[in-house]
């Protein structure tokens, strides 16, 4: 299995994400934002957390216009998998690959702490290693993680089983306490909490490890 991790100026979770992929058995290639094509044979693209372009204009807005996004879009259009974490989630909403937007936390504060979530679906390749309703804890570290979308979009996400995770408590004002969502084909995941920071006992938790491990099985299952 091969994963590509995109690197933008200001990405700071790119290497953590690469390590999490590697520990799950992926071969990982780091891909600079100015490249226009992904390496051949990539199964999963990781859009990492950080502060791409200093969060100028809007979080993820400038990164969403990078040359490599064309490569990401064709990968996704061809049915490829992608995961966007934190700033990566913001990038995916800015590209339109995921619906909705992430705005300033309702309490205005930057929130940096472990948060409890429930797993809301297990049919996607990301969550096959969890059970429905399972409580998992990932760290969050964001200023703009308040997920917002029109009511009809939220209803559709719920109806199509595309709410991936929900915060147990209201963390940042997100609509319906949504912490992560899936694309229509359930192959693109965006989430604000950091599974890659919770995938090694040495980092204080391993709740994120099953996400990468079950993702590593996509080729086997198909």
């Amino acid at each position: 299995m091969k994963a590509a991790v995109l690197v933008f100026p200001g990405s700071n979770c790119d290497r953590d994400l690469a390590v999490a992929f590697e520990n799950a058995g992926f071969q990982v290639e780091m891909v600079w934002h100015k490249d226009t094509n992904l390496p051949t044979g990539v199964d999963v693209v990781g859009v990492p957390g950080g502060f791409s372009y200093g969060d100028y204009l809007r979080c993820g807005a400038i990164a969403a216009q990078s040359p490599i996004i064309a490569g990401l879009k064709s990968h996704v259009e061809a049915g490829g998998y992608a995961i966007g974490i934190c700033n990566g989630f913001q990038v995916l909403t800015e590209t339109g690959l995921l619906p909705g937007a992430l705005i300033r936390n309702a309490g205005l504060k930057f929130i940096c702490k472990p948060v409890d979530m429930t797993v809301e679906e297990t049919s996607s390749a990301f969550n096959a290693g969890y059970s429905i309703g399972q409580k998992i804890t990932f760290p969050v570290a964001h200023h703009d993680g308040n997920y917002i979308a029109q009511d009809d979009v939220l209803d559709r996400l719920e109806g199509e089983g595309r709410v991936a995770y929900r915060y147990v408590d209201d963390v940042n004002g997100s609509a319906r306490r949504i912490a992560g969502i899936l694309s229509e084909n359930h192959r693109v995941l965006g989430l604000m909490p950091h599974p890659e920071r919770s995938a090694d006992e040495k980092l204080g938790g391993t709740d994120g490890a099953p996400l990468f491990q079950s993702l590593a099985k996509i080729g086997v299952a198909a």
Binding site: L57, A61, Q65, P99, G100, I103, I148, A149
Partner: peptide, 9 residues
């Protein structure tokens, strides 16, 4: 439409 505003919000 393309960059300066996010017309979702």
């Amino acid at each position: 439409e393309d960059l300066l505003a996010n017309t979702v919000i």
